[in-house]
Computed example of a mutant assay.
Amino acid sequence: MKEPIKNKKIWLGFLVIFIMLNPWYFPSGGEPVLIYGVPLWAIVIIIMSIVLSLYITYVIHYHWDTLDEEENGEEK
């Protein structure tokens, strides 16, 4: 299992999430779109924060080499 820092696909995923996390792509000015009284840009930020958390969990669980750390913990 490779370390995630060397996997370019993982970094591409982080890049896409961070681009979507910053709502610079919403039009400026005008009346904001509200959903149940919450601006759409705030909902997008909340959803993308959840996506980022799930993605980090996925990377740690499936791409991080934790075998050495688990073995070291058992030897002590």
Rank of each mutant, 00 (worst) to 15 (best):
Ile47Trp: 06
Pro4Asp: 06
Tyr55Lys: 05
Tyr36Val: 07
Tyr25Thr: 05
Pro4Trp: 12
Leu54Phe: 14
Leu34Tyr: 12
Ile47Glu: 02
Leu15Cys: 13
Tyr25Glu: 01
Glu31Thr: 10
Ile43Leu: 11
Trp41Leu: 08
Leu15Gln: 02
Trp24His: 05
Pro32Leu: 06
Gly13Asn: 01
Leu54Ser: 08
Val44Ile: 08
Asn7Ile: 14
Ile35Ala: 07
Lys9Phe: 12
Leu40Gly: 11
Gly13Val: 03
Ser53Tyr: 13
Ile46Asn: 15
Pro27Val: 11
Ser49Met: 06
Trp11Lys: 11
Ile43Asp: 04
Lys6Asn: 12
Ser28Thr: 09
Lys9Ser: 10
Ile45His: 11
Phe18Ile: 15
Phe18Glu: 04
Tyr25Phe: 08
Phe18Gly: 00
Tyr55Ala: 03
Glu3Phe: 00
Ser49His: 02
Val44Trp: 06
Ile5Trp: 09
Lys6Asp: 15
Trp11Leu: 13
Val44Gly: 01
Ile50Asn: 08
Tyr36Thr: 09
Ile45Met: 15
Ile5Leu: 09
Ile5Glu: 14
Pro4Asn: 12
Ile56Tyr: 01
Ile35Cys: 14
Ile47Arg: 02
Pro27Asp: 05
Gly29Ala: 02
Val33Gly: 06
Glu31Ala: 13
Ile10Gly: 00
Asn22Thr: 15
Leu54Tyr: 03
Val33Lys: 15
Ser53Trp: 09
Ile46Val: 10
Met20Asp: 02
Asn7Gly: 08
Ile45Thr: 11
Leu40Val: 09
Gly29Gln: 02
Val51Ile: 12
Pro23Gln: 14
Asn22Tyr: 15
Trp24Asn: 13
Pro39Tyr: 07
Pro23Tyr: 04
Tyr25Ser: 02
Gly13Pro: 01
Tyr25Asp: 03
Pro27Ile: 07
Gly29Arg: 00
Tyr55Ile: 04
Ile35His: 04
Tyr25Cys: 01
Val38Thr: 10
Gly13Phe: 03
Ser28Asp: 13
Ile56Phe: 05
Val33Ala: 12
Ser49Val: 04
Lys9Thr: 14
Asn7Ala: 06
Val16Thr: 02
Gly30Asp: 00
Ile19Arg: 03
Lys8Asp: 03
Pro23Lys: 05
Ile50Arg: 15
Val51Cys: 15
Ile43Gln: 08
Ile46Asp: 15
